[in-house]
Amino acid sequence: MSESSLQSKTFPMTRRAFSTSLAAAATLGASGKASATMTRRSVPGRFAYIGSGEAEAGAIHVVDLSKDGSRVVQTMASASPAHLELHPSGSMLYAVHAVNEWESLPRGAVSAYAIDAETGHLTLQRVQPLALSAINPSHALVTPDGSHLIVAVAGGGSYNVLPLESNGLPLPVSGLFKEVGFSTEAGVGKTSTPSSLVLHSDGRTLVAADTGNESLSTFRLETDTLTPLHRRRVHKGAGPSQMVGHTNARFVYALNSEDGSISVHRIDTSRGQTQASHQRVATNGASTIAMHPSGRFLLTANGARMTAWKIDRSNGRIQPAESLPVEATQIAFDRSGRTIIAAHAPTGRMVRGEFSIANGSISGLTEVGNFSSAHSFAIL
């Protein structure tokens, strides 16, 4: 593929090819030859990593966002990359594979890719299967100290903890917490569907959104496992599907897919729980949510328009600041908060813009490329 091309390509991978790449990754990890430096050298906002496609037709695309233009510099096969997560060092990328089976067993998997700081290119280092019955994982995060990768498993209703080596490579699952459903006041049973994770700045308190249970749960990461602390139902008919935390670590914002609202919750780390929402705001059908690194703005998008919400950092409450004509179903910021990437899954179109911290506006929109079924990305 030409580096100047803006069109994505996927390279179908057969089951045999996947098995071969898995074995190769395991060999590299075991031999130690695949170790990656943990020194951050890349320029903030230079590379975007885009996960697209399903099953064996899935792929991860690497886009160079240098000032001289956006260009696809690498595309590699990756089975259903439902979520992409960066190591805090910026030297490793993790792909969560939302599959029903891995190595002929009912489980998903996580792949670790070393990032070349100069070119942004990815090199597969290791593939680590999840626990049995941990199918269709949906989200993941790395602790700030880079010691653990925590995975939310939608299909299996559980959370998997994978320790990370000093070079960022994932070890086998060390901790598993199986969530249970609960009955509503009408006696209707709920099924746990973990969908999104937020880690408190203390590096040990985890908040999880559970769409099926309509709840937010808090856990404590202790050694290599999770200890449940508290579970709070958001509200009837909420279905929290995505969640972001405020940079001051005092609030979390749940995007509720069932009624299209945002609920604002205060985190009480002394008691290990989230409090009942003190604000609920309608979003006109938002399907994605993102927090600006400054903590001054929250962004939502409903496919046709994007809304920037100004945050009162004293109480966490939000109010609309800007309505932007940007088609998006996914949003991400770079570490500086100056660059924003927006993807529109129905058309595959992805654009890049400059975000203003003064008023929440977006300018200088340029097309990054067209990626069929783009559903996850990260900006380094």
Rank of each mutant, 00 (worst) to 15 (best):
A208P: 10
A208I: 06
A209L: 07
A209W: 05
T211H: 13
G212N: 08
N213P: 15
L216I: 14
S217I: 10
T218D: 07
T218F: 08
T218W: 05
F219W: 13
F219L: 10
R220S: 14
E222L: 11
E222F: 14
E222A: 15
E222H: 15
T223H: 15
D224I: 08
T225R: 12
L226E: 11
L226Q: 06
T227D: 13
T227W: 14
P228T: 11
P228N: 12
L229T: 14
L229W: 13
H230D: 13
R231V: 07
R231C: 11
R232E: 14
R232N: 15
R232Q: 14
R233S: 13
R233G: 10
R233K: 09
V234L: 11
K236D: 01
G237K: 01
A238D: 02
G239T: 01
G239A: 04
G239E: 01
P240G: 14
P240A: 09
S241I: 04
S241Q: 10
M243S: 06
V244Y: 04
V244Q: 03
V244W: 06
T247Y: 02
T247M: 02
A249F: 10
A249C: 09
R250M: 10
R250F: 12
F251M: 01
V252Q: 02
V252G: 00
Y253P: 03
Y253I: 00
A254D: 03
A254W: 00
A254I: 01
L255Y: 06
L255G: 02
L255W: 07
L255T: 05
N256Q: 08
N256V: 00
N256E: 05
S257C: 08
E258Y: 03
E258Q: 07
D259Q: 01
D259R: 00
G260R: 00
G260A: 01
G260K: 00
G260Q: 00
S261M: 01
S261D: 02
S261I: 00
S261P: 03
I262T: 07
S263V: 03
S263W: 02
V264Y: 06
V264G: 05
V264F: 13
H265Y: 09
H265M: 10
R266M: 12
R266Y: 15
D268T: 03
D268L: 13
D268I: 05
T269E: 15
T269R: 13
T269A: 08
S270Q: 15
S270E: 15
G272I: 08
G272H: 15
Q273S: 09
Q273D: 09
T274S: 03
T274N: 09
T274V: 14
Q275S: 10
Q275P: 04
A276S: 15
H278T: 10
H278Q: 11
Q279R: 15
R280W: 09
V281W: 05
V281Q: 08
A282Y: 08
A282N: 12
A282C: 15
A282G: 15
T283Y: 04
T283I: 03
N284H: 07
G285F: 11
G285H: 07
G285A: 10
G285E: 04
G285P: 13
A286T: 05
T288N: 07
I289N: 03
I289Q: 05
A290E: 06
A290W: 04
A290I: 02
A290T: 05
M291S: 07
M291C: 10
M291A: 03
M291N: 04
H292K: 09
P293A: 12
P293E: 12
S294K: 13
G295W: 09
G295P: 05
G295Q: 06
F297W: 07
L298H: 12
L299P: 08
L299V: 04
